[in-house]
Amino acid sequence: MVAPPDNAPPDNDVLWARSLHYAHGGAPALVDVSLGVRQGEIVALTGARGSGKTTLLRCLSGQLLPSEGEVWFNSVPVHTMGDLSRERLRRDRFGWLGPEPQLLPELKVWENAALPLLLTGASHRSAKHAACEWLDRLDIAAFARKRPAALSRAECQRVALARALVTVPSVIYADEPTAPLHRSDRALLLRTLTTAARSHEITVLLATDDEATAAVADRRLTLVDGRLAGTADASPLPDTPEGQAACSLSA
């Protein structure tokens, strides 16, 4: 994607990044990555392990500051924000769903789901109400008063999804959310995620290395060794810009 000539991002993009660079202790993880994501879009970030998907998600969500480049959310620069305002932005507008459910073992299931609301200072009653509503929609309301240890892994991951959705964020960053699940559980989790995103106009960035998972997205971006290899519609499969590069190399 070519960056626009002026300094400000296009208005219709909820999330916009220009020439992001990031290095893990000298080893480049992201090299000159630019992208724009429209409101309500579901974008799959594909690529092999170690291609920089997680780093890109963390840069876009403000958990990491890129060493070079810009990240804009709703025409607000994220890369120049202070730590506290970035934290508040992540709490209020972003949701995060990782490969591990990362539930707190000492909290009950509904308390885990309600935690983001409680952290924003919502009242106990309203947080509980919202959390239980989402748990109900995700078919795990029966476990609401149990501890995470009593749940299966797929159920825990659904609780983590409820926790990401409970604040009804603008963007959900899903970092390989289906990696530890079986196929039936994967399909269920993805269906719930996409349904919730479509009905609430939530933008989803879905990092995955699984073809079937990437197929639910509207659009697909492929990372190869920290570079954005090319964009394509979700179906059919991308017309291999990597393949062309390989050909030109072998020629």
Partner: peptide, 16 residues
């Protein structure tokens, strides 16, 4: 430590 990491992913304020 794992719980603290989860809290940081949730952007829990260090103050809390």
């Amino acid at each position: 430590a794992a719980g603290r990491e989860a809290m940081l992913d949730l952007a829990a304020p260090a103050r809390v």
